[in-house]
Each structure stands twice: as structure tokens, then as C-alpha cells.
Nucleic acid binder design. Structure first.
Lengths: 254, 254
DNA sequence: CGGGGAATTGATCTCAGTCAACGGTTGTGG
DNA sequence: CCACAACCGTTGACTGAGATCAATTCCCCG
């Protein structure tokens, strides 16, 4: 049925999530505007800044961070290729978090797609698809909240890794349950609300149980279903996205 | 300058946040559609449900909850009068949390306002105002994440109470630093990721320090600034909304 | 006036933070 | 090409915040 091979992670994600037609995929691909590269450690935008560019990550990882008054930082979210930046916000609203690059990042401007989906009042398949993506992003944020409330360290780590596993699979960046992961254990700790030391302990523990392997920058999850079971016994039903995605799939063409 | 007296909490909130003109306030008030009452404990919508009504709470409190597989629940957010329900989501996207009533709740439908702000592509003051409200809601969610990561129990409780104090002040439901609060300590615990027992201990402790009084269902914060200082030393800069709101205020009429 | 849910308090235990030390890798400059 | 520094990962010992269990007490409501 679908024969068009998507160029960008965003489009690959759309295809796996929604099974849209070739023409939708092509159109979204073509909306990708000027591309630019940001170096590792660079900040894309700062808290309170206005006038943000709408864009999509085409390669590399970014972090939505938030500096504490005592100098440390929170990590509010992890962004991977195919994720949208400043898409849903109204342009005149200041950002309330910083956005920094974990490694070298390439982005493509997406202003015209945003214009199309949010303001042109065209109710076509493209618009549908973009709204669903935004909703999914919200689901990911809800997941983050769920993860931080009343979950043990082991569950949090497993939960985050399954989240990444799922999202990276969508864009084709995870094969054979292996994916490369540029976050340091420090960053994992800041994302999960755990100390570095404890993150390490948990990772070692999961390795000993043969549930999760993380050497250098590559993650390997031999049996995602098994790892999932570890999390599920005290996790919300949306904990691992299998629950929400099928629900999204149905109304896509409604 | 502004002489129109807003009828609804939503409008009162708008007035304090953005100083809009009388005509905008009047118009938003008039967009309030059919009103209905939900009994304490009732569920407005369930996780996964489609076809949600866009509405605003006019009185009563609601909780955005999420059932765990082991029977307990997370509370993802607390909704008070003036808060929007199903406003930003695309109508065909299923909800990923339940919405339940803490006490008796009255809501008003707001579909026409949503239609106006999100799809009619009119860039007027009303649209601006609604987008800013949505952004503020996102800020509240970010606050929740920040609260759950690396904050002590005492800080979390204080932070949540300041959040409620701030939001209730906006709608005129908090006078003299007193407001009524229908949440049980159980619910507070589920919101903050703490056990009931510990929530109670912290509340007692804050009472002994004369920073926060919670008897029966009323909260009294003698000196919000003092309580704020307790939280701020390890909280993100947006921790208490004073930071974000002035930022929002500027571009409101840009 | 009894019953039940909520609040309060004590005792105990455990998970995770902190401090500290050491091994491994990377990369940078002499 | 080597040496050093800087950072990351790994592990141990100790400590403490907060969970859990259990027992009262306090309200509220029928």
C-alpha cells in the first residue's frame, strides 16, 4: 500500500503511528524548511525567550532543562529526532524552559507546516496527523509525571528506557532492541530525580538480572516485554505507551 | 479603566492576568454555554474516551487522575474554577487521564470559544488571551514535574499550597491568605508522591513553624513570602509563578 | 449516639542520598 | 607518542528522609 519512503524521522514516526497515505507523508517531508546544525552543548533557546522558531529535530538529542537557583538543573524531558520544538505554543508566549543539545543536533524549520496545521483552518489529513503528534507529546509528558510519582528507582529507570525504546523504534533508530543513547548517568539521574550513584546501582542491578544492558552509549533490552512486566505491576495503565497508541490509531482517519 | 465586572472565574482570571479590555471580558463571559452540575465523586470523562466536551469549571474542584494497575491512583493535576477542560486537545484524540469531581462541580460548555480561538483563525485579543491561558496551564504542569523531582516533602507541600494560593487568588477565591481546600491529606499525598502519614507530619511541622495552617478544609498562609523562601532555595526559578506571570503580561497586547 | 472515614502520632525499617575512593576512557597539549 | 587532566562509571560505608504498620483520636453524618 504505502510505498513512499519517508526522508525525515518525523515522517517515519507519522507512518508508523498513523498509516497515512503517501501523499500526506510526501507533503510533510516537503514542509521541512531551512536546516541548521547546533553543536553539542549549545542552547537552542533560553527560558523566558520570545520569538522562537518552530522546528523539528532531524538528528541528535536535546534536553528540555530548567536551572535551579542552587546551580543544578532539572531535566523536564528528552527530545529525540522527529520531536517537535515550539510547535504547539503560541509564538508570543515566552518559553519556560531551556533547550540544550546533548550531542551535535540538526534541526529543520517547520514554520510552514505549523502555519498549515494550526492556523490555516484546513481540516485535512496533514492537520489531523500533526494534532495527533502533539497529543502524543502530551502523553509523554504525562508519562513523565507518572514516572516521578510513587515509583521506585528501578521502575523509573526501566520506565524511561522503555519510553525511549518505544520512541526510537518509531523513527527506526532502534533495531534488534538496541539503540545508542548519548545521555550520561548524570543526565539520567536529573531526568528521573535520582542521584548519579543510585542510577548506576540500579543499572548494574538490571544488568545482573539480564533485563537491561547499558555499555558505553548503547542500550540493549533483550526482552522488552519482560522489562515491561517489572514496571507494570505498580505503573499506571498508560505507563508504557502500548495503551495509548492503539487508541490514537483508530480515529486517525475518522 | 476596566469597569466590567466579570461573571465567571475564567474571566476573573483573565482580568487579573492580562488586563484585557471590557469588551474582551464581556465576550468571553458570553461564550459560556450550557451549564451542568456533576456530583461529588462523579467522573467527567474516562481515560481513552473520545468525543469530549470542551468546558470550563465554574465552581468546585476536580482531579486529573490515573488509575494504577494495583488499584491505587496517581493525581496528575488539581483543577479549580476557571480551569479549562479539553480545551487544547484535538477533539478526536482520546483522553489519557480520568477526570473526577472532588466536591459538587458546576461546569459550562465552552465549545464556541474554543472554535473561535483555535479554528476561526481570527487573531484578536480573545484568541491571544486564550492562548496565553493555555500556556499558563502548561506552566502549571511543568511546575508539577519540577515539584516531583528532587524536592523534599516539606518543599513539595509548601510548593503545592503556594500554587493553589496563587491560582485561587486570581479567581478571587482566596482572601486574606485564606482559602477553602476540599482535598483530603490522602489526595495531597497522591498529588505529591508522598504517603498520607508523611503529608500529615509535614503539615504538623509547618503548623508548628507557623508557616501554614490547615484545619478541616481551610488553608491559611500567614505570610506567603516567608513560605516561598522556604521553597525557593532549592526550587527552579519558575517554582512559584511570580516569575512566569510578569513575562506573560508583557506580550499580551503586543 | 454509634459508625466510618479522616487526621494524628509512635515505632520500625528500607530505599536512596551523600561522601569518598578508585578504575577507565577520552582527548589535549607538549 | 606519551603524560596528564577531566570526566564518566563503579563500588563501599554510612546516614537520613520517608514508607509502612499499627493504634488512637477527632469529626461528620446518619
Amino acid at each position: 500500500m504505502t510505498t513512499y519512503e519517508p526522508t525525515f524521522p518525523l515522517t517515519r514516526r507519522l507512518r508508523k503511528l498513523l498509516n497515512p497515505t503517501d501523499s500526506v507523508l510526501k507533503s510533510v517531508d516537503q514542509h521541512h524548511g531551512r536546516r541548521s546544525t547546533l553543536c553539542r552543548g549549545a542552547e537552542f533557546c533560553q527560558e523566558g525567550e520570545l520569538n522562537q522558531k518552530t522546528a523539528v529535530i532531524t538528528s541528535g538529542w536535546m534536553l528540555r532543562t530548567n536551572l535551579l537557583s542552587d546551580g543544578r538543573r532539572h531535566i523536564l524531558g528528552v527530545l529525540i529526532p522527529g520531536d517537535l520544538i515550539n510547535f504547539s505554543l503560541y509564538t508570543c508566549v515566552p518559553s519556560f524552559s531551556d533547550l540544550e543539545c546533548v550531542n551535535d543536533v540538526e534541526i529543520a524549520e517547520l514554520g510552514s507546516l505549523r502555519q498549515h496545521a494550526m492556523f490555516d483552518r484546513v481540516k485535512d489529513e496533514i492537520t489531523d496527523a500533526m494534532w495527533l503528534l502533539i497529543a502524543l507529546d502530551e502523553a509523554i509528558a504525562v508519562n513523565a509525571i507518572a514516572r516521578l510519582t510513587r515509583q521506585s528507582a528501578e521502575e523509573r529507570v526501566a520506565h524511561l528506557m522503555l519510553d525511549l525504546h518505544y520512541r526510537l523504534t518509531l523513527i527506526g533508530a532502534c533495531v534488534d532492541n538496541r539503540f545508542s543513547m548519548p545521555l550520561t548517568q548524570q543526565a539520567l539521574g536529573e531526568t528521573l530525580g535520582l542521584s548519579v550513584v543510585h542510577v548506576n546501582r540500579v543499572l548494574m542491578q538490571l544488568k545482573r538480572k539480564e533485563l537491561l544492558f547499558l555499555n558505553r552509549k548503547e542500550v540493549y533490552i533483550p526482552d522488552p516485554a519482560k522489562l515491561k512486566r517489572l514496571v507494570l505491576h505498580s505503573s499506571p495503565s498508560i505507563g508504557v505507551q502500548d495503551h495509548i497508541v492503539p487508541a490514537l490509531r483508530e480515529p486517525a482517519h475518522a
